[in-house]
């Protein structure tokens, strides 16, 4: 509609406002944060313990619960991000999106700002999971730099998924449809990633999926940074995550027009 002349201070300003909005939200109601911690906690405690005690999966010598902790963490962040699209469905139904479109904030900043806000919510969620993992005895690599890089990766990856989710909201415009599709996406991605087993143990066709599954790269990065301290694949992982998120930002920014007409 308008010639896009990028204005950095405007971009930062609106992104900051969106992050602050999300922060206010989370600070007023933490129940969702706790409810969403239950399922990952069960994964770690039950699944981790049971499968771990079978010693059926080659983890390279690390305890199974520690092996799956990065995957569980990323899965819970992804869940938050995927269901963020619901918020957009709601804001479309209420007049909030219309209202935002009448403000000076450019459309693409609204999209990216909201995606980053979702990323922040997902990050807060994953900190809760991190804490639970530590409590159940997962030994993390003690290195603040590794920890910080992990946080940034979770933020960027979740923001990418949130952008994906917003694009979905342009297609699945009602709440019911959206909830269904959200569930349908997370579990296949989770099981076709390296979350629960090393890639090498997977059948060939699943491996192929795993390689194009962005979750694989985020999990691999976190496992290296937080559990094994093996950083050989890290640059590839980071590249893959940034590539994924950039593509998702682009698609969401383009699709956003559709949701408001």
């Amino acid at each position: 509609m308008d010639a896009i002349d990028f204005d950095l201070s405007e971009f930062l300003r609106v992104c900051y406002a969106m992050l602050e909005l999300e922060y206010f939200r989370v600070s007023h109601d933490r129940t969702e944060l706790y409810i969403r911690a239950v399922q990952p906690a069960l994964w770690l405690v039950l699944f981790g313990f049971i499968i771990g005690s079978l010693r059926a999966i080659p983890t390279g010598g690390i305890p199974y619960t520690a092996f799956i902790a990065p995957g569980v963490l990323i899965q819970s962040a992804t869940t938050v991000a995927i269901f963020y699209g619901l918020m957009i469905v709601w804001e479309r139904e209420s007049g909030i999106l219309k209202r935002l479109l009448s403000t000076p904030a450019p459309r693409y900043v609204i999209v990216i700002g909201r995606a980053l806000a979702a990323g922040m919510r997902a990050l807060i969620q994953s900190l809760v999971i991190f804490l639970i993992a530590a409590i159940v005895g997962v030994k993390f690599v003690i290195n603040p730099i590794n920890f910080l890089i992990s946080l940034v990766i979770v933020l960027i990856f979740s923001a990418g998924f949130a952008a994906f989710s917003m694009s979905l909201a342009t297609v699945f415009k009602t709440r019911e449809k959206f909830v269904g599709i959200g569930q349908l996406i997370i579990f296949p991605l989770f099981f076709s990633s390296n979350a629960l087993y090393p890639l090498t143990t997977m059948p060939a066709f699943l491996q192929m999926f795993a390689y194009i599954n962005p979750m694989t790269y985020a999990i691999d990065a976190l496992r290296g940074l937080l559990i094994t301290n093996n950083l050989t694949g890290l640059s590839t992982d980071i590249f893959a995550v940034i590539l994924f998120t950039s593509i998702m930002f682009y698609i969401a920014a383009v699709r956003f027009k559709k949701i408001v007409e």
């Binding site: 609106v14 406002a17 206010f24 909030i96």
Partner: peptide, 24 residues
């Protein structure tokens, strides 16, 4: 502009809504 449906976030306070809009 005030749309016919609703244009504030209901899970934050009145002050916070005004703050977010003034930042935008």
């Amino acid at each position: 502009y005030v749309p016919q449906e609703m244009s504030v976030w209901t899970d934050i306070s009145a002050y916070e809504n005004l703050l977010i809009y003034s930042q935008i």
